[in-house]
Amino acid sequence: MTALRFLLTALVVAMAQPSGAQAQQRFITVASTTSTEQSGLFGHLLPAFEKASGIRVRVVALGTGQALDLARRGDADVVFVHDPAAEEKFVAEAFGVKRQQVMYNDFILVGPKADPAKAAGQDILEGLRRVATTQAPFVSRGDKSGTHTAELRYWKAAGVDLATASGIRGPWYRDTGSGMGPALNTAASMNAYILADRGTWLNFRNRGELGIVVAGDQALFNQYGVILVNPAKHAHVKAADGQKFIDWIVSPAGQQAIAAYRIGGEQLFFPNAR
């Protein structure tokens, strides 16, 4: 019995410690995307905000769709994602207070350096058409993320009907249902084409034989927005601190911090708050 009491006491102490520390610490929870997390942007950005405000930011990185769902359930204070249509819908449903644009980066078509589909160039729609025609292997995120919805938008615009392109989603089209990094790993091992965000790509190590095939198309523009979760829907939302984060990130200080983040001298994100 003494052993049991000891165990229970130890447990209570172990459980109480982190929440005790949390009570003293001001923090907000931001639901964001794997692309921002894995590109290393947050690692660069957040210390500056935390220093300026004394508010810690806890980032939960998911696909855009998942991040918005999480916020709908009230499990985040702020969402920071990149799917303008879905973001507008989120605000229209009153889950979010207001959408503000923060920055953009761009999508790139990554593929084998040998480019068997001859997709290289500056035209994403033409590039994708060639991938489809030659049935070169293509890896899709397939996870309702911002990148995934953008990819589907491009296929549609390119006039490629994935469902019937070659029967039902030909074997060349691999729907992996995974985050940006895992999907890139898959593409690297299959030597396949894949639509990626530039930030994750630049920070990605396991490139294998892959390189950038299409970049620079205006259509590849990838806009990020930030939204405060509506405290009218979820009373516990830390509206004041969340708004402070939003105000900072669209302020000149925040915008400069974004512009200053570089990998190998290359700028990943371009601030464009209004």
Binding site: F42, G43, V60, M180, G181, N185, F204, R205, R207
Partner: peptide, 24 residues
């Protein structure tokens, strides 16, 4: 846990994250 840096990041979620970054 959400794999939050410094709060809920444990060994396995770190491994998953580094794999995602392609840092095998």
């Amino acid at each position: 846990g959400g794999n939050i840096d410094g709060v809920t990041r444990v060994m396995t979620t770190t491994i998953a994250l580094e794999t995602s970054k392609g840092d095998l």
